[in-house]
Amino acid sequence: MQNNTNKMKFLVPLISVFLGLLIGGIIMLISGYPPIEAYAALFEGIFGGSYYMGETIRQMSPLILSGLAVAFAFRTGLFNIGVEGQLLVGWLAAVYVGIFVDAPAIIHIPLAILAAGVAGALWGSVPGILKARFKVHEVITTIMMNYIALYSTNEIIRNFMLAPGERTENVKESASLASPFLQELTDNSTLHYGIIVAIVAAVIMWFLLWRTTLGYELRAVGFNQHASQYAGINVSKNIVLSMAISGAFAGIAGSMEGLGTYQYMTINAGFTGVGFDGIAVALLGANSAIGVILGAALFGGLKIGALNMQAMAGVPTELVGIVIALIIFFVACSYLVHWLMNRVNRGGKI
């Protein structure tokens, strides 16, 4: 039984990816695009050279972190839809420290990332406190907090940090995650050191959840508040803490953009989408640390490959959006995949 469910954990996403690509191909056919060429270009655009690999890995870093944020909250029974907002305040905090603090890189970078984490944690703990104290559902409050984050960060940039081009100044070099070495290695991609931060964060999440008494408490509260309370665990404290830790991961995801990819923060007309992609990445990765990394790799790869697909095969990137949506759809209704697999299995026997 146990083995079976473990096997399913891998099989469901794999089959979902396959089905997503298959149906995406059918949609291309109907729309008059050549699916085989398109997928060849997509594949080429992910694996076809060190530049593409570099871009994919760069794209993965914030996705891993926002996926971890969602997965961590989910493991403790909370649904954090506010990763987007926590990411934005983290981004701003990282850029602020990156611009206005003077320090050697060895201090400056960790300090800026820490600031992003703290900002995200504070932002995330507000819905946590509201839930713990007043039983307000975190889905509602986290969504609302996203809008507050978006417009507040824009307003702060506009009033205090504005540089030409609707954005802030660049962060100081001592705070930048950009790496000439990695760029050179990957044929001048925008790859930066952020991926190391993301992978370390994944290890931390795993360790925190599965190896510490804090993780034990958080998981217990997530599964059964009543039994946890009865056993002497402080349920309210754990709800707030869980949202804060989740928010910290999200905030650090923001620092990937601020210190790595862009080196600045723009006035955002709308959400970045990275926070919401985190929900899909966590879902795809079955809320485990390693799964989140794999899910982020798939997402990052598809998004980068889509650019090449448009350039080479003339298929619009939106089709990759459809494929991604289909994959999420199939993972979400894993029941459907189970049913399909049972049909196939039974057919095989007869």
Partner: peptide, 28 residues
């Protein structure tokens, strides 16, 4: 009585997980 999604083993220390020898300085 139980956290049903926890293993039997994890349930056995529901009140004592934070004490020695089940954990030390916060590490299970």
């Amino acid at each position: 009585g139980l956290v049903l999604d926890f293993s039997v083993g994890e349930n056995m220390v529901l009140q004592t997980y934070y004490q020695k020898p089940y954990s030390k300085s916060g590490i299970l």
